[in-house]
Amino acid sequence: MASAMEFRIETERLILEPAKASDARSLHDVLSDQDHMRFTASTADFAASQRYFRSLEQHWRRHGFGAWTLVHRQTSETLGWGGLIMDEDEPGWGPELVYFLAPSFTGKGYAYEMAKAATVWGFETLGLDKICAFAKQDNRPSQRLLVKLGFRKVRFVASLKRDYFERLP
């Protein structure tokens, strides 16, 4: 298995490092903020956040790709996490682009910067033939971000109450 450093990516403003269990310390406040995480899922307590980030770390070992922790290159602040994951409950969807930022970092292009790097990495390094994403219909910022990245809305998935997007290389 490759080392975590082999999966580290640097963009103009970000360092993307494979998510690990210890990231729960710096990102629990985001993950447990029910209002901010209203378009996805939140955790009830710190133990649940630890389990979540442990699962992200294990994902890298199982699949050879996963979510990164987003670190600001100049300030070393942890901004959020995101990347490419396989939904263990719905593996048929294939690799899925996900992104979550702390409220103070939204609307500043960081999600786009990470998502663009993840998409390029997925196609060019992993050789993926498709990347999917989901966004609730009332999550306009995510819908716009996906379209800007070249994703195409395919359909509404009623069981998830989300629009399904996909992008080909």
Score class of each variant (00 low, 15 high):
4 A>L: 10
5 M>L: 12
8 R>N: 08
10 E>C: 10
13 R>V: 05
13 R>H: 14
16 L>I: 08
18 P>R: 12
19 A>H: 02
20 K>G: 13
20 K>I: 10
22 S>R: 14
24 A>Y: 02
24 A>H: 07
24 A>L: 10
24 A>D: 07
24 A>V: 09
26 S>T: 14
27 L>A: 12
28 H>I: 02
28 H>M: 06
29 D>W: 06
30 V>A: 11
30 V>S: 04
30 V>G: 00
33 D>N: 15
34 Q>S: 13
34 Q>T: 13
36 H>R: 02
39 F>T: 04
39 F>M: 04
40 T>R: 13
41 A>E: 15
45 D>S: 04
45 D>E: 04
45 D>V: 01
46 F>G: 01
47 A>G: 11
48 A>M: 11
50 Q>M: 11
50 Q>D: 02
51 R>W: 10
52 Y>F: 14
52 Y>S: 10
53 F>V: 14
56 L>C: 14
58 Q>L: 13
60 W>K: 01
61 R>Y: 10
61 R>M: 11
62 R>P: 00
62 R>Y: 10
63 H>V: 03
63 H>Y: 15
66 G>R: 07
66 G>Q: 01
67 A>S: 13
68 W>P: 00
68 W>M: 06
68 W>N: 00
71 V>R: 15
72 H>Y: 06
73 R>F: 07
73 R>T: 05
75 T>V: 06
76 S>R: 15
81 W>D: 03
84 L>R: 03
84 L>M: 12
85 I>P: 00
87 D>S: 13
88 E>R: 12
96 E>R: 10
97 L>F: 04
100 F>Q: 07
100 F>R: 15
100 F>H: 13
101 L>H: 08
103 P>A: 09
107 G>Q: 08
108 K>H: 15
108 K>V: 06
110 Y>F: 15
112 Y>A: 09
113 E>D: 06
116 K>E: 11
120 V>L: 14
125 T>H: 15
126 L>T: 02
127 G>C: 07
128 L>M: 09
128 L>E: 05
131 I>M: 08
134 F>E: 09
134 F>A: 02
135 A>T: 09
135 A>D: 07
136 K>F: 08
137 Q>W: 10
137 Q>P: 06
139 N>H: 15
139 N>T: 04
140 R>N: 02
141 P>V: 05
142 S>W: 00
143 Q>W: 09
145 L>R: 03
146 L>N: 00
147 V>E: 14
147 V>H: 10
147 V>K: 14
148 K>F: 06
148 K>S: 08
149 L>P: 00
150 G>S: 02
150 G>M: 00
150 G>E: 01
151 F>A: 03
151 F>L: 05
151 F>N: 01
152 R>T: 13
155 R>L: 13
155 R>P: 08
157 V>N: 09
159 S>G: 01
159 S>I: 07
160 L>F: 14
161 K>E: 07
163 D>T: 09
164 Y>R: 11
165 F>G: 05
165 F>V: 00
165 F>I: 00
